[in-house]
Amino acid sequence: GEDLPLPPGWSVDWTMRGRKYYIDHNTNTTHWSHPLESGPSSG
């Protein structure tokens, strides 16, 4: 998808195989999909 801006506290990194993933430092979790690309989340 597009390179959307990341929310505060997020960063992007790549695996050893070159796969892009996103790090949420607020909750110390990692995600394969961009936080703003996922569907609407409630709460």
Results as ranks from 00 to 15, higher is better:
14 W>Y: 15
40 P>F: 13
21 Y>P: 00
22 Y>A: 00
24 D>E: 02
23 I>P: 00
11 S>K: 05
33 S>T: 14
28 N>T: 04
31 H>G: 01
2 E>W: 09
14 W>E: 06
33 S>P: 02
40 P>Q: 12
5 P>C: 00
18 G>I: 04
18 G>N: 04
35 P>E: 03
40 P>D: 12
13 D>P: 01
18 G>D: 02
14 W>P: 04
11 S>L: 04
3 D>Q: 10
1 G>L: 11
37 E>V: 14
21 Y>I: 08
11 S>I: 05
34 H>V: 05
21 Y>L: 06
8 P>Q: 08
3 D>F: 09
43 G>T: 12
37 E>K: 13
15 T>K: 02
24 D>Q: 03
34 H>D: 01
6 L>A: 01
24 D>I: 01
2 E>N: 11
13 D>Y: 15
31 H>I: 03
29 T>H: 04
9 G>T: 00
43 G>Y: 12
39 G>K: 13
15 T>G: 04
28 N>G: 14
16 M>C: 15
33 S>Y: 13
21 Y>H: 01
26 N>R: 06
5 P>T: 09
32 W>F: 07
32 W>K: 03
14 W>R: 09
16 M>W: 14
2 E>Q: 10
23 I>T: 07
9 G>K: 03
6 L>W: 00
19 R>N: 08
32 W>N: 03
36 L>I: 06
39 G>L: 13
10 W>G: 00
32 W>T: 04
16 M>Y: 14
3 D>A: 09
39 G>I: 11
4 L>K: 10
15 T>F: 04
25 H>D: 04
34 H>W: 06
42 S>N: 13
23 I>F: 07
40 P>G: 13
42 S>M: 13
32 W>Y: 06
9 G>V: 00
36 L>G: 08
33 S>Q: 13
35 P>G: 02
4 L>H: 08
7 P>W: 02
13 D>L: 11
33 S>K: 14
17 R>G: 15
31 H>Y: 09
38 S>Y: 11
33 S>A: 10
9 G>M: 03
1 G>A: 12
18 G>L: 05
43 G>P: 12
41 S>N: 10
31 H>S: 09
17 R>K: 14
25 H>R: 06
19 R>C: 15
38 S>Q: 13
1 G>M: 11
19 R>V: 13
6 L>N: 00
9 G>Q: 02
9 G>C: 14
25 H>T: 07
30 T>E: 07
7 P>R: 00
38 S>T: 11
7 P>E: 02
1 G>T: 12
25 H>S: 08
